[in-house]
Simulated scan of single mutants.
Amino acid sequence: MHKAYKIPTLLGLIVLVGGLIGGIVMINSRQQLIPKAAASPTPQGVALSNVTDTSFTVSWTTTISATGFIKLMSQGKSDRIILDGRDNNNGSQNKRIVHYVLVDSLTAAQTYKFVIGVDNGQFDQNGSPFSVKTAQALSSAPQSDIASGVILSGNGQAAEGVIVYVQLPSGQLASALSGSNGGWAVPLSTIRAENGDSWLNYDLSATVYAIKVDGGPDGIADAILTTAIDKPVPPLKLGNSYDFRQSREPISDATGKQTTASGSSTSDKSGAKSLFDFSSLGPVTPLNEGLTLDNPKKEGEIIYTDKPEFFGSGPAGSSVEIKIESVNPISGE
């Protein structure tokens, strides 16, 4: 007895062909719809400050909120990850625009190398890790002398979590982070001379120095003042420049510019930028620690096509070996 076969109707053929085409489209689309990881924001205005015999501070800003950390590279030991002090206090990493990391528990007169971490990316200095040498241990610091003040946002509210840099002539850069009420304090008496081998000598009432406030996208402020009026420094508002050499009471003129009581415009006379010998640790460049594979997204992923596409990145000149596990394994370089 012969088995009967039915010839598919036209409608059946259309359904079969449509299903085949749809399956191909879905398979191919699967390769195209795999998202690539977003690039981490690049650190801006990276600065090294508060260098002592056992610690140093690294600070920077980002254009968007991101997590931040420092990876300290130790010879013969595991790399050490140091979080922003505010993250250490609450036990989790938070995204923020202003980043401030204290690296401590170090050895005197030793050179340390580090990279900056932002979200999932890491950054070095034009292909090499950042480098800093801790200072020699010194005897007890001179008499305590602390500069302090308050930082205000552009709308006059307390500016929390912005960086206040203090630069005395011939001294190393010092810094502090403003608190919840916008307040800040920097011990001037523990600032070292440029070479780090001695405490800085300065006049407690007549030294002219500069302050720079960095709030990232929220704005900056700078001021030039003397040690005679820094307890406290008059409030500094982001977006303004100040000159307190003649008076500690700035006023606003008809144009809205901040001026001293003598009437001279701070933007014309302060000279804060030339006095403030501030330079960032740039150039800051993305760190390529190795090869990354963006598509397929994960190891062992099943690929539903006989012509898979691979996307990724890595250092120039690197060799990549790809192996596809199947009935007949395929590998190539």
Score class of each variant (00 low, 15 high):
residue 1 M to R: 00
residue 8 P to M: 09
residue 13 L to D: 08
residue 15 V to W: 01
residue 16 L to C: 14
residue 22 G to V: 09
residue 25 V to N: 00
residue 26 M to G: 03
residue 29 S to R: 11
residue 32 Q to G: 09
residue 36 K to E: 15
residue 37 A to N: 12
residue 39 A to Q: 15
residue 44 Q to P: 03
residue 46 V to T: 11
residue 47 A to Y: 14
residue 51 V to M: 00
residue 52 T to H: 00
residue 61 T to S: 15
residue 61 T to E: 09
residue 65 S to T: 09
residue 66 A to F: 07
residue 74 S to I: 03
residue 75 Q to V: 09
residue 77 K to W: 00
residue 79 D to Q: 11
residue 81 I to Y: 09
residue 86 R to L: 12
residue 87 D to P: 09
residue 88 N to K: 13
residue 94 N to I: 11
residue 96 R to W: 06
residue 99 H to S: 13
residue 106 L to D: 00
residue 109 A to Y: 05
residue 110 Q to D: 10
residue 111 T to F: 06
residue 111 T to M: 11
residue 117 G to A: 03
residue 118 V to T: 12
residue 122 Q to H: 02
residue 123 F to S: 05
residue 124 D to Y: 08
residue 127 G to S: 00
residue 130 F to C: 11
residue 133 K to A: 15
residue 145 D to G: 04
residue 152 L to F: 07
residue 153 S to A: 10
residue 154 G to H: 02
residue 160 E to W: 04
residue 161 G to I: 02
residue 162 V to K: 01
residue 168 L to M: 14
residue 168 L to C: 10
residue 173 L to M: 09
residue 176 A to V: 00
residue 178 S to K: 00
residue 178 S to T: 15
residue 180 S to C: 01
residue 181 N to R: 00
residue 185 A to N: 05
residue 192 R to P: 05
residue 194 E to G: 14
residue 195 N to Q: 06
residue 195 N to V: 01
residue 202 Y to M: 05
residue 204 L to A: 13
residue 206 A to S: 14
residue 206 A to L: 03
residue 220 I to H: 12
residue 221 A to Y: 10
residue 224 I to K: 04
residue 228 A to R: 10
residue 229 I to M: 13
residue 232 P to W: 08
residue 233 V to Y: 01
residue 234 P to I: 02
residue 237 K to L: 03
residue 244 F to P: 02
residue 246 Q to E: 07
residue 247 S to V: 00
residue 249 E to M: 12
residue 249 E to N: 14
residue 251 I to E: 04
residue 254 A to K: 11
residue 257 K to T: 11
residue 258 Q to F: 09
residue 258 Q to H: 12
residue 259 T to R: 08
residue 260 T to R: 13
residue 273 K to G: 08
residue 275 L to H: 08
residue 279 S to C: 02
residue 280 S to C: 04
residue 287 L to P: 01
residue 289 E to T: 15
residue 290 G to A: 15
residue 291 L to C: 09
residue 292 T to I: 14
residue 294 D to N: 10
residue 299 E to H: 04
residue 305 T to M: 10
residue 309 E to M: 15
residue 318 S to E: 07
residue 324 I to F: 10
residue 328 N to R: 07
residue 329 P to M: 05
residue 329 P to H: 05
residue 331 S to C: 01
residue 331 S to H: 10
